[in-house]
């Protein structure tokens, strides 16, 4: 009986975690305008691009997901941001093999690399004026990096969910595993750049971390179609609030 229960549990978890990618294509390019709330006015600060590209190794074909944040030229003199988050994932399951984070924010720099070896991550970390450190740590089977998780979220079929229902993810960030929940909150119409006004799934992101603030303050609006493109992302972090608005989408 115990064995039977275990087999059933493994089967259920494999069905829920091994989601097939239908929403994310290679060659996508999503461009966003990132604004920060200053005294109640949204001030445009940076451009964020999310791109997908097929890469081939001698054995496999992988999907390269990259997210870049670049401050607008007028801000560069005051506070230059060049953030780059990348993930190499299986194109079918969106399970990551390699994750990289390269940060330049003002004078602060940080480089991070995770190699996913089964349930172990081999991480390399380099901070400004600090020696490079390497570490190996265990993760749960369903854990992903932050970039892959954003794309995995696009494969959740929200049309079958009712408002209030949640979907859980496990994300590895800053060499730690954390639980992330995506709560479906219903549908809303949102402006989606060159795609026009789109009916979107409103998703509230919650995580057990001090990096996100407030309840239902971190929202992602995904277009209610097969591509489930993030049209608007509203965030609330300890230093303030802001949003990412889609300005251009191609290759979807």
């Amino acid at each position: 009986m115990r064995k039977l229960f275990m087999i059933a549990a493994v089967l259920i978890s494999s069905i829920t975690s091994a989601q097939t990618n239908k929403a994310v294509k290679s060659g996508e390019k999503l461009t966003y305008a990132a604004s920060y709330n200053m005294s109640g006015l949204m001030t445009p600060l940076a451009q964020v691009t999310m791109q997908t590209q097929t890469v081939k190794t001698s054995k496999n074909t992988l999907l390269h997901l990259s997210c870049n944040a670049t401050t607008y030229t007028k801000w560069d003199t005051f506070f230059k941001i060049r953030d780059n988050y990348e993930s190499y994932v299986n194109p079918t399951t969106l399970k990551p093999s390699l994750y990289k984070r390269d940060i330049l924010e003002g004078t602060y720099t940080k480089k991070e690399k995770y190699l996913f070896k089964g349930n172990t991550i081999q991480s390399t970390l380099k901070r400004k004026n600090m020696p490079e450190t390497t570490k190996a740590f265990q993760i749960s089977g369903s854990a992903s990096d932050v970039v892959a998780t954003i794309y995995q979220l696009r494969n959740v079929d929200f049309s079958k969910m009712s408002p209030g229902q949640t979907k859980s993810f496990v994300v590895v960030f800053d060499e730690k595993e954390m639980g992330v929940t995506a709560k479906y909150m219903g549908k809303e119409t949102v402006k989606a750049g060159n795609l026009g006004s789109k009916t979107c799934y409103k998703i509230s992101i919650g995580a057990k971390t001090n990096k996100l603030k407030g309840t239902d303050k971190n929202i992602i609006y995904l277009t209610a179609d097969n591509a489930r493109v993030p049209a608007l992302i509203q965030f609330s972090i300890p230093v303030g609030t802001g949003q990412l608005t889609l300005t251009n989408a191609s290759g979807i």
């Binding site: 890469v55 190794t57 001698s58 054995k59 496999n60 992988l62 390269h64 990348e86 190499y88 093999s97 390699l98 990289k100 690399k113 190699l115 996913f116 070896k117």
Partner: peptide, 12 residues
């Protein structure tokens, strides 16, 4: 990206 491909080849 060239370095990444090397890492991925090693991983495979």
């Amino acid at each position: 990206q060239k370095e990444d491909l090397k890492d991925l080849e090693e991983l495979e």
